[in-house]
Design a protein around this nucleic acid. Structure first.
Length: 279
DNA sequence: CGCTTTACCTGCTGGC
DNA sequence: TGCCAGCAGGTAAAGC
């Protein structure tokens, strides 16, 4: 379940491997892994050379020498694997991109939610990749004041707001639950009811959790695979995510799970108490 | 407009 | 053993 740290680690892997190489051949085993017309994607990218890779939230953006873009979103289960020797094509292989020098970048995606886009030279990325419209700031570019202002104008549960990519880019269900635990905030708390100190604590927790995870190689929580195949740590570090019914690592109280806006949310009722509203 | 719910998709788990 | 409901979750679209 790649969130910002995992996507950033993939980006760093691609930066080390692909710039200066050309895509010589693309094979789509499952054409609907590409947005729009599959043949346009193939024609647009084949014979083009990679210049560099950027990341916006959970989107990976590969810039081509001709000014076009190759955009990838891994969604739930997507993986990009760099293969330097021939490997059997598994059941979940969606696309194969072959590069000069004989290496292959393989797009593997069990649940098929992952998508790739080709943006022609001269077009804005947001014209083609609609999900990038209104994308919020990176967590470290979002000030406490920004977050406070947004909370002042919203009655939504804070958990739901953290998943809203137009507020802050890059948080997913796992890191959102972890940040709220570290902040001592009940996930269902309406944004408007959060005090300024609570928002300051939350802001710090978001940045600290994401930076720590990037430093750990994106493997802190998520079941995740590096471009060169390293395995993640399968949630063995989580404070609350996926630990419903187990004792809180801080106070021993049973971790609870409930649905908030359709998403499972995990928390410790003692460490994340409901508080009286600030008004 | 603000917010919630549902659809998408596949593999895994648990109950019978 | 088989069958089926439920669940997982990022995002877009539909619903209220």
């Amino acid at each position: 379940l790649p969130e910002l740290p995992e996507v950033e680690i993939v980006r760093r892997g691609l930066v080390n491997l692909t710039p200066g190489l050309a895509i010589v051949k693309i094979e789509l085993l499952r054409p609907d892994c590409v947005a729009g017309e599959a043949q346009e994607f193939i024609n647009g990218l084949e014979q083009q050379t990679l210049h560099h890779w950027q990341r916006l939230g959970k989107y990976l953006l590969g810039k081509l020498d001709n000014g076009g873009w190759w955009v990838v979103h891994l969604r739930m289960t997507g993986q990009l694997l760099w293969l330097t020797t021939p490997q059997p094509v598994g059941k979940h292989t969606r696309a194969r991109m072959f590069f000069t020098g004989g290496s292959e970048l393989r797009f593997v995606d069990q649940r098929t939610f992952g998508r790739m886009w080709w943006v022609p030279p001269g077009q804005e990325v947001t014209q083609v990749v609609t999900g990038l419209r209104g994308m919020g700031p990176e967590p470290w570019d979002c000030s406490v004041q920004d977050l406070y202002q947004k909370c002042q104008h919203s009655q939504r549960p804070i958990k739901t707001a953290l998943l809203d990519q137009t507020w802050i880019a890059g948080l997913g269900n796992i890191y959102a639950d972890e940040c709220l635990f570290l902040s001592g905030i009940d996930p269902s708390t309406p944004c408007h009811d959060l005090s300024r100190p609570q928002i300051e604590t939350l802001h710090q927790a978001i940045i600290q959790v994401l930076e720590t995870s990037i430093q750990a190689g994106g493997t802190t929580f998520a079941h995740f695979r590096h471009v060169q195949g390293m395995n993640g740590h399968y949630l063995n570090q989580a404070w609350v995510y996926g630990r419903a019914g187990q004792p809180c690592r801080v106070c021993g109280t049973e971790i609870q799970r409930r649905k908030i806006a359709g998403r499972s949310s995990h928390g410790c009722p003692r460490c994340q108490p409901k508080r009286p509203t600030k008004h």
